[in-house]
Amino acid sequence: MLNVRLDKELEEKLEFLSKKEGVSKSKIVKDALTAYLDKSKSSFSAFELGKDLFGIAEGEENLSSTFKEKIKEKLNAKFTH
């Protein structure tokens, strides 16, 4: 839960829009905050956007260093002469 203090003028504008649109003040504020955060998302770095995904992959840790060896093993197994 978040409490926000608004000056009188902003509160009046919010109240007017709420009545005009027929939606709650909370919905207007949530929608505005969502739009603001979505717009600012583009300023995050690639690391910041993906940091919750790093380190969750499963598999062999040394796959990148043993890639050629693994390919040779698979080809030899498939095309035995």
Rank of each mutant, 00 (worst) to 15 (best):
M1I: 09
F16H: 13
N76R: 13
S42I: 12
F67Q: 04
K74L: 15
V23Q: 01
S18K: 00
G22A: 02
S40Y: 08
F67M: 11
V29H: 00
E11F: 12
L75W: 08
S24N: 01
L10A: 09
E73M: 06
F47H: 13
A77N: 15
N62H: 10
N76Q: 14
K27T: 08
L17K: 04
K70L: 09
D52Q: 06
K39S: 09
E15K: 15
G55P: 05
K72C: 05
K72L: 14
G59P: 02
L49Y: 03
K74T: 12
F67K: 10
N62Y: 06
L2T: 11
E15C: 04
K41F: 13
K39R: 13
E11P: 03
K74G: 05
K51A: 02
L49P: 01
V23W: 04
L63W: 12
K39W: 07
S24I: 06
D7T: 03
S24H: 03
D31F: 03
L37D: 03
K13P: 04
R5E: 11
T66M: 07
F79E: 03
S65R: 10
L14K: 00
S65A: 14
L10I: 11
D31S: 09
S40M: 14
E12S: 12
K39A: 08
K39E: 15
L6G: 02
K51H: 06
K19P: 01
E15Y: 08
G22S: 01
E73H: 07
S64W: 11
K70F: 06
G50H: 13
L14H: 02
F47C: 04
E48K: 06
S24F: 00
E9Y: 03
E12V: 07
K20V: 05
N3D: 10
S64R: 13
D38I: 04
I56D: 06
S64M: 14
K68Q: 15
E58N: 10
S64D: 15
H81C: 09
K68E: 15
R5L: 13
N76H: 10
Y36F: 14
E58S: 14
K72Q: 14
E11Y: 15
K25S: 02
E12F: 07
S26F: 02
K8C: 05
K68S: 15
L53T: 07
Y36D: 00
I28T: 05
T66Y: 02
E69V: 08
G50K: 12
M1L: 09
E69Q: 11
A57M: 07
E73D: 11
E69T: 09
K19E: 11
L37G: 00
